[in-house]
């Protein structure tokens, strides 16, 4: 098995690594994988390139260590994990599948094309009842990447993935 893994190159290797990482959850939002989040930037013969979401996101170390374990378990210990800061991560890199998983989990996903210096996002649709009548309570939520919101229709508070 391990010998076979070493023989893989190019697209085959990339596909396999992405498949493995699609089972590595974000430690703080476990409904989405690190691939859904768009933090996996490149797979090379000798290295896996990832990028942090926020500069100070405390999950960054936990994510790197979870990825390390997953790669090692799959016999891909030769892949180093490389962290790059540029280009800066944006919520536009969250996959469609990831957005659906967030919504099902009760977190309003970020709108598309919103990675800009926007200070006020249009109200999110409530992930519980779907109503567009919601308001932001605080730009800063339970993790760096989320804001606190409230649905004015069903009254439920909810998290929203901030456009970033």
């Amino acid at each position: 098995m391990k010998a076979a893994a070493h023989a893989e190159t190019g697209e085959a290797l990339k596909d396999r690594v992405l498949e493995i990482l699609s089972h590595v959850p974000d430690p703080e939002i476990p409904c989405v994988s690190v691939v859904d989040l768009g933090i996996v930037r490149d797979v090379r013969e000798d290295a896996l390139v990832i990028t942090p979401t926020y500069s100070g996101c405390p999950a960054t170390l936990a994510i790197a260590s979870a990825i390390r374990s997953a790669l090692d378990r799959a016999g891909l210990g030769r892949l180093r994990i490389e962290t790059v800061l540029s280009p800066a991560w944006t919520t536009d890199w969250i996959s469609e599948e990831g957005r659906e998983k967030l919504r099902a989990y009760g977190i309003a996903p970020p709108p598309h094309g919103a990675a800009r210096y926007s200070l006020r996002d249009a109200p999110a649709a409530c992930p519980r009842c779907g109503s567009p009548h919601t308001e932001e309570i605080s730009r800063f939520g339970s993790t760096p990447c989320k804001s606190l919101n409230r649905c004015l229709a069903c009254g439920e508070p909810f998290d929203r993935f901030k456009c970033h």
Binding site: Y54, I137, S138, P144, L148
Partner: peptide
């Protein structure tokens, strides 16, 4: 509570930038 979260988040961002 909201200010608590905001100041902690801002502090976290700043410390993250600082570490870089």
């Amino acid at each position: 509570l909201e200010i608590d979260l905001a100041l902690a988040n801002i502090g976290l961002d700043l410390i993250g930038q600082s570490s870089h």
